[in-house]
């Protein structure tokens, strides 16, 4: 079972949370997305036990929630007009 995709997904997720902690939200968002894509591939195409699939899906949900938050934050940050002197 080529679980290098699983390993890749885990590496990406770890990297994403490092970037997240380092406040590189743009990079963290991209990495969260990539890691979920890999996890999803593993769940769909690399037969895992139902239990393993369920726990991977739950992880995906967490990462997606976090990614959503980062996306919202970035959107707001970008829209933030430069504080014009009143």
């Amino acid at each position: 079972m080529a679980n290098n995709n699983l390993q890749k997904a885990i590496d990406l997720a770890n990297k994403a949370s490092e970037e997240d902690k380092a406040k590189n939200y743009k990079e963290a968002l991209r990495l969260y997305e990539q890691s979920v894509q890999y996890f999803l591939h593993v769940v769909k195409y690399e037969a895992q036990g139902e239990k393993a699939k369920q726990s991977i899906r739950a992880k995906c949900a967490d990462y997606l929630d976090r990614a959503e938050q980062l996306k919202e934050y970035l959107k707001k940050a970008e829209k933030q007009p430069p504080t014009k002197p009143v």
Binding site: E33, V36, L40, R57, A58, C60, A61, L64, D65, K71
Partner: peptide, 21 residues
């Protein structure tokens, strides 16, 4: 509770929602 019952399709949908900038 959501996380425990999520399906592949739901994950895919959220991914697309994220990706589409």
């Amino acid at each position: 509770a959501k996380a425990s019952g999520i399906s592949d399709e739901e994950i895919e949908r959220q991914l697309k929602a994220l990706g589409v900038d």
